[in-house]
Nucleic acid binder design. Sequence first.
DNA 1: CTTTATTTAATACACTCGTATTATCAAATA
DNA 2: TATTTGATAATACGAGTGTATTAAATAAAG
Lengths: 201, 201
Amino acid sequence: MPKLIDHDVKRLDIAQATWKILIKEGAGGASVRNIAKEAGITLGALRYYFTSQEELMAFTEELVHEKITEKAAEHFMADLAPHEKILDLLLGLLPQPQEELSASKARLIFKLQPKNTDKPYDTGRDSVYQAVKSVMSNLVMLNLLKKDTDLSLETDRLYALMDGLAMEGMLRGTGYNPYKAKNIIKTHLTSICKTESGDLY
Amino acid sequence: MPKLIDHDVKRLDIAQATWKILIKEGAGGASVRNIAKEAGITLGALRYYFTSQEELMAFTEELVHEKITEKAAEHFMADLAPHEKILDLLLGLLPQPQEELSASKARLIFKLQPKNTDKPYDTGRDSVYQAVKSVMSNLVMLNLLKKDTDLSLETDRLYALMDGLAMEGMLRGTGYNPYKAKNIIKTHLTSICKTESGDLY
DNA sequence: CTTTATTTAATACACTCGTATTATCAAATA
DNA sequence: TATTTGATAATACGAGTGTATTAAATAAAG
């Protein structure tokens, strides 16, 4: 009977506005009023689609993680050599310059946002950690890792490196050099892979 | 003529209270009222010692960086084998469990705090970056690095790794395992150092 | 056209924020 | 002791926050 507005589409619109605000002003600027203004709706309209700010944030965070997981899956299915695929995948997890809706930055902001629940951060729900795990698992399958590699340790090492690089990418506004990040990841992959098969990276 | 209260000592007290609040509640909880309560003084008293919140924050951030630089210098002068010194130094830059006033956590919080100035983050003023640079520089002096090492790249790689590990340490409350971090750093140092001199780490 | 459910808009409430103002208290000098 | 100056305390102001409430507008169904 009412106006024909797709509820889910509108929720996506609002979540994207939230996303945009988060990147532009950080978590501190993500007030419901700011978000409503960014989405071009009023406060009441926003509250019609999301009954609380917490719900909106959870929805947006989920959206960001879905986007990252999706992107990683696409890279996995690319028609490239394994080492090329892996390199592209990892680079895709970092902020890109002039990226309007950076999933990497948004993920970091959510990750660093202190939840009122005092439970520690759950890496199991981190899309980037899952992607890194997949990458390492693939390297094992392809028998590319050096002998006597501690898989768990190397997974955590690569994960920490990715988080550090992502942070660097987020904090540096314009003067961020993605080529440097690419070279760092290449160096890292080379150092954990067997050397016998030549310089893959 | 007045009460005999050392101005600078009191400013340090307040800065320490700020530090404590930052770690306990994050940057969002660091309101002047919260800080005053933590320091056991009133709002007016706080404003007497710091004319603005911004000044207080800058003072506290400076204090944190001084503490880190100091600690790193101590480690450098320790009477240990070079590789032991370096390992201890790097570990000292990470959050330690049950550490009341963690300089590492406080530094990260400041680093991630979006300044109203839109200038990008200046690594030159980051005490941890300086420490990492010193470490790498030392490895060069001692001729411990592998041949054809890209010093700038490896410095940035280690820096990113340290930031990632520090983040992990900050986000995990109780379930944080410093031994894992130690092993990761050991592995990393081994991978960038020459192998001929045996397993140093 | 009227009804009805959906969507929007506007305003209000209680709270916290940083800052400012003002008066009061304490102690060392004269 | 009186005075002066450092230090403290209490309160207020305007802005911003999340949420709640209520009235209005919209468009499909009868």
